[in-house]
Amino acid sequence: MSMSASSPLLAVEGVSVFYGKFRAIDHVDVTVGGGEVVSIIGANGAGKSTLLKAIIGQADRVEGTIGFAGEDIIGRSTEAIVASGIMLVPEGRRLFPSLTVEENLRLGWDVGRKGEIGFADVWHQFPVLLQRRRQKAGSLSGGEQQMVALARALLANPRLLLCDEISLGLAPRVVNELYALIPDIKRRGIGILIVEQDIERSLAVADRFYCLLEGKVSLAGRPHEVTRDLVIKHYFGL
């Protein structure tokens, strides 16, 4: 499927996801290479988060193939998928509020692969978290919580990072801070799949993008190759 000689890190091929009889995702193809940032855009209910859930092994019924590092991971447990190198930064952060910052981060370290990213990197990257490491995660501000969620995912040393709506409900200044980290993650060879409502932000950072409309890919390409009007058209299905 891929145009490049080596197969991509993630190859979603002909994937459909069902909720009961409802087909939330309909024959979707998506690829992400190592060190590549790919954005999924689309309106509410287009199936963006569902696609991430299918990749991480949290969707009930999935058809098609999801290739990761050359192996089909459909049917594997989330635990196994995470251990093999995919980690999710869930929508709404989903920290464990009664656990300390450090305990939350350690969970990421425990579930993931062992690799080069360690606590020293996290404390260096997010000095504020070092100060707050003994604090309960529930007591942090939204931006700090999102930092913990991102750091938790990085500590799993993923080869592919899935980011679900990381800018949701955060001040623009905080979002800028978080997005400024992406080039560094990229440089480590980690593939990043970003789901965002915010088209501008999402396209600015992406190497490639897919637009979902009612569970199908309505447009795909490189951000600089498409006009804004074309994206809007396929976003809303006008």
Partner: peptide, 9 residues
Amino acid sequence: AAADLIGLS
């Protein structure tokens, strides 16, 4: 649910 999302069984 959050535990399952990050691979804690």
